[in-house]
Amino acid sequence: MANLSLNSVKESYASVKESMKEIMQPYAEKVQPYARVLAARAKNRPTSQSFIAGLTEDFLEFHGDRRFGDDAAIIAGVARINDMPITVIGIEKGITLQESIKRNFGAAHPEGYRKALRLMKQAEKFHRPVLCIVDTSGAYCGIGAEERGQGQAIAENLMEMMTLKTPVISLLIGEGGSGGALALAVADQVWMMENSIYSVISPEGCASILWKDSQKMQEAAEHLKLTAQDLFDMGVVEQIIPESSPKEFSKVYAVLKTMLYDSFQSAMQKPVDELVANRYQRFRQMGIQ
């Protein structure tokens, strides 16, 4: 793919990088991986709606899974990047407290994942690329979510996304919490913002299960290898997107938009069968020693 290389993107950020210190400053006393966890969860961090506004034009939100209801934890619809129509699906934590409550703090129910799949199938029909924006502590754990088949909804997304006949890129912007994140991350490429995390379990959950002490989350964060750099090194993600302070995120969006446009353009040139075969191989080799 004709992507900007990680290094060239980083160079273009020389000035912006300085402001990273500002982001990480409040967490300086924490050990490194856990500082990333806190940065990924920071309240002032841009959420999916900010990314959609920064990366696309003409966004129209479409609602509902046509089965049960509409899940406000997932924002989805159509938009364009430059001259290219795309389908965009983002898990949204909300900005104000009131909005976060409405959006269940970005913890989706099965109907959210089913809405996402419905719109991915629509994108497949009209052969436009899909951008998934992931930011969730995890799929919601509750009575309604279980009654309506949270596990089944996620499983179906994994299966269907694997052979979706259109390009898919998933971008992790904050928390990538386990199956609830993976349900929107079976993609041709997975990119992570510099301060996002992606993990099979939260460091607190891991510490409490393994060591009966959720205070050992710093240690757990270290061992889980959940930072963008760790995952890049393991070959689980293709790109790390350098960040700036939240106030200057427009610079980040400008670079990211170019990267997305170029990647989607190049993916659209490929035969669909090759695209799908590569996606299968991408996941097929994970965990083979």
């Binding site: 386990s178 199956g179 689980v236 965990g287």
Partner: peptide, 26 residues
């Protein structure tokens, strides 16, 4: 569930196995 001692690589097995199920199903 997923085995947390293998971190993200165990999470990836959910996608990998689902892909194989789809291959078999198709």
């Amino acid at each position: 569930g997923a085995r947390m001692q293998e971190g993200i690589l165990s999470l990836m097995q959910m996608a990998k196995t689902s892909g194989a199920v789809k291959l078999h199903s198709d």
